[in-house]
């Protein structure tokens, strides 16, 4: 039996729930794999060794860090699932704007919590990550494919084309052309573009596609009614460090003004 673990750090458990939503596939997988660690779903959990460990959530507390380091040590393959584990997620969107002390004071009235807290980080900032399945939540088909690929000794690979590609395939009318703020041009496809199909602009929850053109993206968002500062903040929601680095590069190059306009 192939030993699989599903571990949650700081997050909303949405990705773990999405795994439980893979109903039929889970049934079929149960013959070939064993969930030896999945505390959300079961009592008897062994944290000894894994063929594949899926990690959800950002590294925010000292406990998170301890768990993920131990998890890495005892796993052959470690897969970060969801945008918190891959990029830091929504909780990291102001990492470049404020200090952790400021956030703690404002929300809890004290910097002393029962756990030691630091700025939310992606798992890859702490340990080596073999594969990333981003998204908020992760795409459940990609979870099943990843398990199936690994069972057959194939490296999971999902091309980092932009969401625009999916809209072409599903013949969805371009929202950017309709004046709706949409991050499709700079966002990693693979979700099937459910948001644009509903008429809502892509919110960028899966992070960057290959070669994202932030400069052009910001200028299109400005044309579609956002101020430069709002455009930055819109792009930053899920991408964590990825966007913070991308935007600060543009600012230092002088291609864009300062944030907060």
């Amino acid at each position: 039996m192939v030993k699989i673990g599903v571990m949650g750090l700081t997050g909303c458990s949405g990705c773990q729930c999405e795994i439980l939503n893979c109903e039929d596939a889970i049934y079929k997988l149960l013959g070939k794999v064993e969930f030896s660690y999945f505390p959300l779903a079961q009592d008897s959990n062994s944290f000894e060794e894994f063929d594949v460990l899926f990690v959800e959530g950002s590294v925010t507390t000292d406990l998170d860090e301890e768990k993920v380091r131990k998890g890495r040590e005892i796993s052959k393959i470690l897969v970060a699932i969801g945008s918190c584990a891959c990029y830091g997620g929504v909780q990291s969107q102001r990492n470049d704007e404020v200090t952790i002390e400021e956030m703690l004071k404002e929300v809890y009235g004290t910097t002393e919590l029962s756990v030691k807290v630091s700025k939310p980080k992606a798992v890859s900032e702490i340990v080596k990550v073999d594969y990333e399945l981003p998204g908020c939540p992760l795409d459940k088909r990609q979870f099943v494919y990843t398990v199936a690929f690994l069972l057959n000794g194939v490296r999971p690979f999902f091309p980092k084309t932009p969401v625009c590609h999916e809209c072409k395939l599903s013949e969805t009318e371009c929202l950017t052309l309709k004046g709706i703020p949409c991050q499709g041009p700079i966002t990693f496809a693979g979700c099937g573009a459910p948001c644009t199909i509903s008429g809502v602009g892509c919110q960028g929850c899966r992070g960057d596609c290959d070669f994202p053109n932030y400069e052009e993206m910001v200028s299109i968002l400005k044309k579609n009614g956002l101020s430069e500062g709002d455009a930055f903040r819109f792009i930053k929601v899920f991408r964590g460090k990825q966007a913070q680095d991308g935007i600060s590069k543009l600012i230092s190059r002088g291609a864009l003004n300062e944030k907060g306009a």
Binding site: L9, T10, G57, S58, T60, T61, L63, D64, V90, Q91, Q93, R94, V98, E102, M103, L104, E106, V107, Y108, L113, S114, V115, V117, P120
Partner: peptide, 12 residues
């Protein structure tokens, strides 16, 4: 004890 890491929704 909930040891869930804080996520600062009121601040983000």
């Amino acid at each position: 004890k909930f040891t869930e890491g804080p996520r600062f929704f009121e601040y983000i």
